[in-house]
Write a protein that binds this DNA or RNA. Structure first.
Lengths: 279, 279
DNA sequence: CACAATTACGAGGGTCGTAAAAATG
DNA sequence: CATTTTTACGACCCTCGTAATTGTG
């Protein structure tokens, strides 16, 4: 059986050009390296070097074996990496969501139902979520619609309603409800990483400018100390707490209400039955 | 660095299903194997087995790693094999010929010009010769025509003329020359492995039957003791000796004379310059 | 009780490092 | 003379085998 250490030493020698140099890189004595290279030749049953009086170089065999060796060593390293990645993925449930809210309820639920697994959550676009579910990089995904595809197992998991969060002195703070159109053009505060809700920015309020915050705490501070309108949702209030000094005005457009659907592949339905039952 | 021995032991265990069985196959004690499997898990940083009280089985990781391991071990084995094949081929000049005669002169010439190399000769068809020259399985080939291709270096190396070798009492033994057509239908003696000359059998004498001999000595005996006509060529006479009691009658058809061309790839022209000069 | 895996311990082999030798530009 | 490869020798580590231990059907 060929020895990967010797092969690695061989590659190092080829990189360095001298035994002394390679030995230093490998934290090995020259003599050991010299011996091991002889062993490698003996094991393969061929010569790999031309030995001059005070110099040793690769011969044609050596150059040929060098390529094979590099490839084999890369494969060996990738075996370890792949094995570890496989193990890690088997201990992990990767949940892909189209918006932050579904993960607020699903993440703790998953943790309690599957205590031996790591729960990994990611916000992504709908296409990435669907393709990720198919290629195994997600085990569960949440979409803002029901794809109605035979290969998925689906269940509605929650609804979310978007509201404007207005300062008390805002001109619309007394209204029962508001449409996107009525607020279009007004500058607003907005959280980053809101996933699916981004369409509001680009499609519903194309004339507004948005002050974007990625940190939830900073965002809350900003909301408290600014007179710019912002957004909130029923789920955000429930799971993240309320900003007392803001008036919530529900948004009347139908797109401001969304139903989230939890999906897994049909063939992994059994594994996540407990989760679907708990919804 | 991963250990191929342990990996091999892992595969053996997977094949056998028990440590004791695998240990026996590997000529190893149970305890050593058990330890090594633990080491393998430790090195990879993952579990590979489910350990029951008196049984050990592959887990999901194990089944996954098994495939990777088999592939890596196969690659490692092929590295040795490839390296040895490469070395062997570098010590060998493979000469492909379309007929026996060119090798009679070229083989000894190659041996004397390249004394450190093994000379390997093979008779093959024209297509195999050309593709073999291109893919490296031949370094030199001899064809009965000049392909006139830019990628080859070519030189005419010899001519051969086919004659009928007739018994003294044959009806045509007094003739100055004979055409194939005049002999078509007559049964004849023939050597096997005559390469290019096979066309005579199928195209020029379609109505004759041939008594085929693969051994040169048996063939000569047969020729001496039979009244069937056979063939000879000027080169065969020169290099293999003459059958005294046969009358040679040259064949008048133009196809009975052939010029052989020696070819190598342009980029290996320098390596075989000495050979081409010697022709 | 037979069989399987694991653990403990001592023996043997292999690999390493130090040091010396040989050779070259 | 500095640099490099090779060889000799002793130390150490690692792996193996034997044997005892634990647990199961």
């Amino acid at each position: 059986m060929i020895n990967l250490n010797e092969l690695q030493q061989f590659v190092s020698f080829a990189d360095c050009g001298t035994l002394v140099g390679a030995a230093a890189v490998l934290h090995l004595s020259q003599s050991a390296l010299s011996r091991n290279m002889r062993n490698l030749e003996k094991e393969l049953g061929i010569t790999l070097f031309v030995r001059k009086k005070n110099r040793i170089e690769l011969n044609e065999n050596g150059r040929y074996v060098l390529n094979l060796a590099k490839s084999l060593l890369a494969d060996a390293a990738s075996l370890s990496a792949k094995a570890q990645a496989f193990d890690r993925s088997s201990r992990t449930i990767a949940l892909g969501v189209c918006a932050p809210a579904p993960s607020w309820v699903l993440t703790p639920l998953l943790s309690s139902l599957y205590p031996s697994k790591l729960i990994q959550t990611e916000i992504a676009g709908e296409n990435k979520l669907l393709s990720g579910l198919n290629d195994g990089s997600y085990q569960l995904i949440v979409l803002p619609f029901n794809p109605g595809d035979e290969q998925y197992f689906t269940r509605a998991c929650s609804r979310e309603h978007l509201s404007f969060a207005l300062p008390k002195d805002h001109r619309c703070s007394g209204r029962e409800s508001l449409s996107f159109a009525e607020m279009d053009g007004e500058n607003m505060l907005l959280m980053n990483d809101i996933g699916f809700w981004n369409f509001v920015q680009t499609e519903k309020l194309p004339n507004s400018h948005f002050l974007i915050q990625s940190d939830r705490f900073s965002f809350n501070e900003l909301v408290r100390n600014s007179s710019l309108p912002s957004f909130t949702t029923d789920l955000a209030k429930q799971y993240l707490g309320i900003n007392d000094d803001r008036i919530e005005v529900p948004i009347s457009d139908p797109e401001a209400s969304v139903t989230y659907y939890l999906l897994c592949l049909k063939n992994s339905r059994k594994a996540y039955q407990a989760l679907f039952n708990a919804l």
